[in-house]
């Protein structure tokens, strides 16, 4: 499991490193598309003006030409790798694009998106940080965010639980539990010991996950100063700095792990067979995923937090109350598992 995790992190990091030039090329392609859109309109407007001079059209052409020039400048900045110019020029482009839309120009990017980008760029300029592609960054906190999104979700957790689950069910299947239950400790205590053991294993896995995602980029790529202050957009329109994001991600991960191990312990000790417990775990997490997809991403629903990244980005106001939900549900699940095993035999 650890080897698989490290392999995933390593592969993803190499992919991100290799994608850095692609990111730049895509940016150029992206803005070139807009430049072409504006240039075409300018050409048409010029022709129309030659036929019938109109003040409105003239005004549009003026703004359009300015926008085209700014887009050209922006593309040059991206090509030259002058990130500060790039950020400033992007702001200028969007301010002009908003004006352009007001004079009936066509610019296929929503005002809301442009406003958000302007605010992000201003923030980055203040911090002295270049803009990163969140899904392909090699900077430590953003790479951690990518890993969190990729691994700490219903799918990743189901895989983890199916692998860990055999620790409980195998003992029943191989009849080792018959021996264990003859030890002079109460059965409920054994359930608790198993829960603790699995939790510790999970915590070790989590610490490897976070440390490797941090150390790999930190040791191999030059980290930017203040990168932990990098602003991340939240669903409510505000920003959250990357450092706080990682703190919340770590804390939520522990909570989610606690909840997941609680589910696993209960299911494992109830089902006692690998096949059945795996199917039940799959059904539980598929159901949880479906509930979230159908708008049940409520504060009290522990599955809201199973996708750690989405919980932080979409429900900033749930932190830290969400942790109480996770801890509470985990405690209830564990209590049921311990209570249920009190008088149950092994055969």
């Amino acid at each position: 499991m650890l080897a698989g995790t490290l392999l995933l992190i390593g592969t993803l990091f190499i992919r991100n490193v290799m994608q850095q030039d692609v990111v730049r090329a895509e940016k150029i392609e992206w803005f070139s598309g807009y430049m072409q859109e504006v240039a075409t309109q300018n050409r048409t407007d010029r022709q129309m003006l030659q036929e019938t001079p109109l003040e409105e059209l003239e005004q549009k052409l003026d703004v359009g030409v300015a926008l085209q020039n700014q887009l050209n400048g922006l593309i040059l900045s991206i090509e030259n790798g002058a990130w500060e110019d790039e950020l400033q020029q992007e702001i200028d482009v969007y301010l002009t694009a908003i004006d352009y839309k007001e004079v009936k120009g066509n610019y296929s990017f929503s005002n809301g998106d442009m406003d958000e980008t302007i605010r992000l760029n201003e923030q980055l300029l203040l911090l002295g940080l270049p803009k990163e592609d969140i899904g392909r960054s090699v900077q430590p906190p953003l790479f951690i965010k990518q890993i969190v999104s990729l691994v700490l979700n219903p799918f990743g957790l189901t895989v983890l639980l199916v692998l860990l689950g055999t620790v409980i069910t195998r003992e029943f299947e191989d009849r080792n539990m018959q021996m264990v239950y003859t030890f002079p400790i109460p059965k409920w205590k054994y359930v608790f010991v198993k829960f603790t053991g699995l939790l510790l294993t999970g915590l070790i896995w989590l610490s490897v996950l976070f440390s490797a995602s941090y150390l790999l980029p930190a040791l191999t790529v030059e980290s930017k100063e203040l990168i932990f202050d990098y602003p991340l957009s939240l669903a409510n329109g505000s920003f959250l700095d990357a450092g706080t994001y990682i703190n919340e991600a770590c804390i939520y991960s522990v909570g989610v792990l606690l909840f997941a191990i609680g589910v696993l312990t209960l299911v494992g000790f109830m089902a006692r067979q690998t096949i059945i417990s795996s199917v039940v775990i799959l059904a539980v997490f598929a159901g949880g995923w479906m509930s979230i997809r159908n708008g049940m991403d409520l504060l009290w629903n522990p599955f809201t937090y199973v996708n750690v990244n989405e919980a932080i980005i979409n429900h900033a106001d749930y932190f830290p109350t969400g942790l109480i939900v996770l801890f509470g549900v985990a405690a209830v699940l564990l209590a049921i598992a311990m209570w249920g095993s009190r008088k149950r035999g092994v055969s």
Binding site: Q273, I275, I276, V280, A286, G287, M290, S291
Partner: peptide, 24 residues
């Protein structure tokens, strides 16, 4: 029996999830 139980659980879960879907 374990395989039958797993098949039953899968089927039941599927029907419950389908019910949720149609409710949604």
């Amino acid at each position: 029996k374990s395989v039958w139980a797993a098949v039953f659980i899968t089927l039941l879960s599927l029907l419950v999830l389908s019910y949720f879907h149609f409710s949604a």
